[in-house]
Design a protein around this nucleic acid. Structure first.
Lengths: 157, 157
DNA sequence: TATTGTTATACTCTATAACTATA
DNA sequence: TATAGTTATAGAGTATAACAATA
């Protein structure tokens, strides 16, 4: 077909076929771009992906169980253990073993953790604002609603 | 009825705050669920994530450059090299060095690769159908359009 | 026996930089 | 000098299973 076309055009010529209508593919690309923005915004901070989110959720649910938070955020137990260890080492998180069930671990923020979340809260929320891209309010609302519907449906099993 | 609150209820009690409106978070959860469906559907096959997609795109673009396909699918060069090596070892993909630019590599499917894609095409497309979850046609169309708008906006830089 | 969390291992994907061979 | 791809190394995230302590 286009044997002698300029490189840039050939570049755009890579055909995706029904992948163009694949939710999985579109979702992946969208997520990659959002993550890219996240790293740019959080560059300079010692934050790893997921860590601030976990910190945030612990702040909202002081005393919640480690497993409950992990399941809510779809983080696997083994990964959660290491993630929490890092947050404890960083001085952000405190682990408590409740006397009534000494197998479990309750999580809460330390003073430093609270200060850290408070300090970065604005940027975190600003970031979510930036994620909206060029969506209008209506589009944004609609998009979130559709995403939620997809998620709820998918987890029904 | 239990005297104490059932674990499932406590489970659902983990509060997410503004994370509930975070595109990054919702996108991540949605993608995890879609991928879970993918693995279930493809279980039993020797397919790794991304591999069939690359196979599919090579099939649609025989002779396309390795870099062009990688950039289109947002796969990093180093990862692409290893991914293609696996596909070559599996006998699915053929690499050709064009005489006019001997730095580059052109990709195409072998006979086995063509047969493999043909064999799994239905399941692949069925999967995309399944991804639609409980969306109506209108919702699906709207969702894809919004995702595309988000992606296009995000990559404008 | 079942559950909560830990440890250990391995694999996928990503990030980065140094390298080659071409151009 | 720049580009296409490779190699090597490191890290994040995930999957899995074996394990300890507790229920």
């Amino acid at each position: 077909m286009n044997r002698h076309v300029a490189p840039e055009v050939v570049e755009a010529d890579v055909e995706l076929g029904e992948l163009n209508a694949s939710l999985g593919f579109l979702l992946r690309v969208a997520q990659l771009q959002i993550f890219e923005q996240f790293f740019e915004a959080m560059s300079g901070e010692s934050l790893k992906p997921g860590e601030f989110t976990v910190l945030w959720v612990i702040g909202l649910n002081p005393g919640a169980g480690q497993g409950a938070i992990a399941r809510r955020l779809m983080i696997k137990p083994a990964h959660m253990t290491k993630l929490i260890q890092r947050l404890v080492e960083a001085g952000h998180v405190e682990r408590t073993v409740p006397p009534d069930d000494r197998r479990s671990v309750q999580l809460s923020l330390t003073k430093e953790g609270l200060a850290f979340v408070a300090k970065h809260k604005d940027r975190f929320l600003q970031l979510h604002e930036a994620e909206r891209g060029s969506f209008t309010d209506t589009e944004y609302t609609r998009f979130v609603a559709l995403l939620r519907k997809l998620i709820v449906t998918g987890s029904e099993r």
